[in-house]
């Protein structure tokens, strides 16, 4: 049902705001000349959350602020920072919310343990199906 209702309000960025008058920063939509750096920046942009949208990465959003953040990512990557440093820089300002890759500590730890828990409980339950054979004489 993704579709039905798609309030792509995000196109209208901040509520009650008209369109900004300035063109976006040059690096918002201009790739870096170094292909390897651009690839790193792109990968990171897909993992950063647009602050004014409902649920989109800054790579996918047409919001102006997403453009500003793309420019920021590209300029920092071009300046030699690693994607993890850029991400940490943004998390320091906006918290974990800004990254689609949840942290591996604190309250989010349960998120990463969940698959192991499910597999573990499932395995315990499933093993009984095979074990019963030995403990029971076949009819």
């Amino acid at each position: 049902m993704r579709a039905l209702f798609l309030a792509l309000l995000l196109l209208f960025a901040a509520p009650l705001a008209a369109d900004p008058t300035m063109p976006p920063a040059a690096l918002a939509d201009t790739p870096l000349p170094d292909a390897a750096q651009e690839a790193k920046a792109q990968a990171l942009m897909h993992e950063l959350r647009c602050l004014v949208c409902q649920n989109q990465s800054i790579a996918d959003s047409h919001a102006d602020m997403a453009g500003d953040m793309r420019a920021l990512v590209r300029s920092k990557i071009a300046a030699g920072e690693s994607p993890d440093e850029v991400r940490a820089w943004l998390i320091k300002r906006y918290g974990d919310w800004v990254s689609f890759n949840p942290p591996t500590h604190g309250a989010a730890l349960g998120l990463w343990l969940a698959p192991l828990l499910f597999l573990g409980v499932g395995l315990l339950l499933a093993l009984r199906l095979f074990r019963r054979r030995g403990s029971e004489t076949k009819a």
């Binding site: 990465s57 974990d96 919310w97 990254s99 890759n101 949840p102 989010a108 998120l111």
Partner: peptide, 26 residues
Amino acid sequence: VVFVGSGYPLLVDVLGVGPISVGPPY
């Protein structure tokens, strides 16, 4: 995993230790 990933942000936010985002990387 899909269930937990979809609901976890709400849980964390309610517990007051968020907000976090769970997206494609997870």
